[in-house]
Write a protein that binds this DNA or RNA. Structure first.
Lengths: 196, 196
DNA sequence: CTATTGGTTGAACGCCGTTCATCAATTAGC
DNA sequence: GCTAATTGATGAACGGCGTTCAACCAATAG
């Protein structure tokens, strides 16, 4: 296969991922349609399936991008708060998580809405990305609780991540108990600053 | 309309709700099919739509039942721990929430998976049921923090509910970070017992 | 006994994701 | 430079979905 052919192939693949991402970002995961995507990309529906085994695989690519951007976003907030006490770093990265979720609401939701339906194993990069987020939390916690056994520290890490995730999830869910961003920030700070 | 006719009508309606509930409980919300339901109920597909505007409305009925049972379950755990200190009551009701979610995984998930897609307003009983759960949490918190302003107490209530919800959600999600029930209990206790 | 009402029927509609025989274009061999 | 082989692209077709609606029928009212 010539370089030009490979390039065209890769270009269509990239275009499909970008268009899918734009569609999800604009109108949500459930608005993604194979036919709509093909029309926008200027190709036939069947072409999608030469690049991805099914639409879920395509969404997984989009989620990969989203997860990496979320990771950088949180990492940047940690770096910016490097000279602050551990509890403030925890709050800073949680607020970064919140703002990412709020600014990219549909893309962020897609992270947790796709996997459930697919029944293949979770890809490794997914677990790695999650592990990365966990490690950002674990570091300040280890400073706060230097005597805590590793196992308990690991559990507390997961517990706090899940707590922040839950607060962001329900806080942004306007249909259930949606509240202003400032109040969600307050809730996160309330829970994290009470961790003694 | 005669009583017999009304009774038959109500019987089919009830049967449809029960069959839908059984299907969701057994294989999840996404496995619910109008045709399958009609076949099980021994009626035509169209009959479903004389009792419910669409399948979402039927699922909403199922969710209503689930929410009421969840409410009683949490209420019972509060009653059983009535003589214990507030923090222990918080932990007891959170564990009740966890065990309900674990035992009725698919029905519990349906509570949060349907509403999102429908675009009508959230029905009042939904908000009432959520308010009920909140009030169970608010009571022990008011004992723990008698001087806290009402607004902040309200925020802390939502924050703690969301935290427990997040821990249960991700803890039960085997595909992401699923862990044994005992560990999820530990995580809940960790977060709640640290609330000072 | 007839007219009317209202729940029930199931074929049909439009949309969906996915497939596959067919096509077209590029590559490899000579 | 020509032919054969390969491979991505095509889009009509398939099966399945939620939902609709003209036709049907059983029960009620006059």
């Amino acid at each position: 296969m010539s370089d030009a052919t490979k390039a065209r192939k890769a270009a269509l693949r990239k275009k499909l991922i970008e268009l899918a991402e734009a569609q999800i970002a604009a109108e949500g995961l459930s608005s993604l349609r194979a036919r709509g995507l093909a029309k926008e990309a200027g190709c036939a529906v069947g072409a999608i399936y030469t690049h991805f085994t099914d639409l879920d695989a395509l969404v997984l690519e989009v989620n990969g991008r989203t997860f990496r951007r979320l990771g950088s976003s949180v990492a940047a907030s940690v770096a910016a708060a490097a000279d602050q006490p551990p509890r403030d770093r925890l709050i800073a990265m949680s607020h970064a998580y919140l703002h990412f979720a709020a600014e990219h609401a549909f893309l962020w939701r897609a992270l947790f809405d796709v996997e459930m339906s697919a029944d293949g194993p979770v890809p490794q990069w997914y677990l790695d990305a999650l592990g990365g987020l966990f490690s950002y939390i674990a570091a300040p916690l280890a400073e706060l609780f230097p005597d805590m056994p590793e196992h308990e520290l690991d559990l507390l890490t997961r517990a706090l991540f899940s707590s922040v995730h839950g607060i962001v999830l329900l806080g942004l869910e306007k249909r259930i108990s949606g509240v202003p961003l400032a109040q969600i920030e307050q809730m996160i700070a309330q829970v994290l600053s009470r961790v003694q």
